[in-house]
């Protein structure tokens, strides 16, 4: 390859190209490639990198969308970290949500994947059906449906009354329960990790289990000593992805609390608080600072996850 490049550069390259210098030559040679890349490049620079850098700048300003940004240095960050009780509330709600929803969702996804891995008939159909909530899960429609289900006169309470004669509370209006209905909604969206777990389970050679069977290991020991350790790369991947998703969760809380984060801030997800600051109070600078703190939290979490992975994730090679 290197030899080929050298031949091209010294002998076969047209004279016009050589005169324009190396950069021009590379650009011309790869023009078709860049044309194909253009939509992505436009999207990345215009919709991701550009706004991200803009928000970084804005996080050091006061900006209300109407007047020019006013540079305030680190004041937004200082206020968020030292003098913002709503930030603390949002952090508490978000961390509770992450800590509860991620492990429960992964456990549920793994359980369903293991059931599917037993080679049941119609697996493809079931897999599609079970994956459906994940496709719809973040949508407004599903959040509205969830709101209807868990309302005081919703289907859940009707079922509880019909089956057990128990009069359930208004799950989404009660600060003691509201967050947990959102956790349940998150668990219900187990399709994506389930599909990945299923693929991971399929990768474990059956003769591992047969060897364990010959060694006298029962199902439980096989699960804890063979399945779980061999699935750790997949658990790690799902864990990181789902945790990031959970930190970023917005739509369910927005719909169920009608954008308030209530009752009594019990569903005030971090992103919802950020949204309120940005589009409720038009404090774009402050909201940008909140966004960058979330970026730092997620980055730290991801970095620590990767650092810790070497102690519990088993890679075959």
């Amino acid at each position: 390859m290197a030899l080929h490049s050298e031949i091209l550069s010294k002998e076969s390259r047209p004279a016009a190209l050589r005169s324009r210098g190396a950069f021009g030559g590379v650009l011309e040679r790869n023009a078709a490639g860049y044309v194909f890349l253009l939509p992505w490049l436009l999207g990345f620079f215009g919709l991701t990198l550009g706004p991200a850098l803009a928000s970084l700048y804005l996080s050091f300003t006061n900006y209300d969308l109407l007047q020019s940004p006013d540079w305030v240095g680190a004041a937004n960050y200082v206020r968020i970290l030292t003098d913002d009780p709503k930030f603390s509330a949002a952090m508490q709600v978000t961390f509770t949500y992450v800590i509860l929803s991620v492990p429960l969702k992964l456990a549920f996804a793994l359980a369903v994947a293991m059931a599917f891995n037993r080679g049941i008939k119609g697996l493809t159909l079931y897999r599609a059906i079970f994956y459906l909530p994940s496709l719809l899960g973040s949508s407004v429609a599903i959040a509205v449906l969830w709101r209807q289900l868990f309302a005081s006169d919703g289907l859940i309470n009707m079922a509880l009354w019909q089956l057990f004669g128990f009069e359930g509370p208004s799950w989404i209006s009660n600060p003691d329960y509201a967050l947990y209905t959102l956790v349940m909604l998150s668990i219900w969206q187990f399709g994506s990790p389930m599909i990945i777990f299923l693929a991971g389970l399929r990768q474990i050679p059956t003769d591992m289990y047969e060897a364990a069977q010959m060694d006298g290991a029962g199902k439980a020991r096989q699960f804890f000593k063979i399945t779980l350790p061999l699935l750790t790369p997949v658990i790690f991947f799902n864990g990181v992805i789902q945790t990031i998703e959970a930190f970023k969760a917005f739509t369910p809380a927005f719909i169920i609390s009608e954008g308030t984060g209530g009752p009594i801030n019990s569903t005030l997800f971090y992103t919802l608080y950020l949204y309120q600051e940005a589009f409720g109070f038009f404090r774009m600078g402050y909201a940008s600072a909140l966004a960058w703190i979330l970026v730092i939290i997620i980055s730290l979490f991801t970095a620590f996850s990767f650092l810790g992975a070497r102690y519990w994730v088993h890679y075959d090679d």
């Binding site: 003769d207 047969e210 060897a211 063979i226 350790p229 061999l230 750790t232 088993h314």
Partner: peptide, 13 residues
């Protein structure tokens, strides 16, 4: 009975 498998079936972890 003990069995030696074609793939060895050693537990990689």
């Amino acid at each position: 009975i003990a069995m030696v498998f074609q793939s060895y079936a050693l537990y990689p972890h």
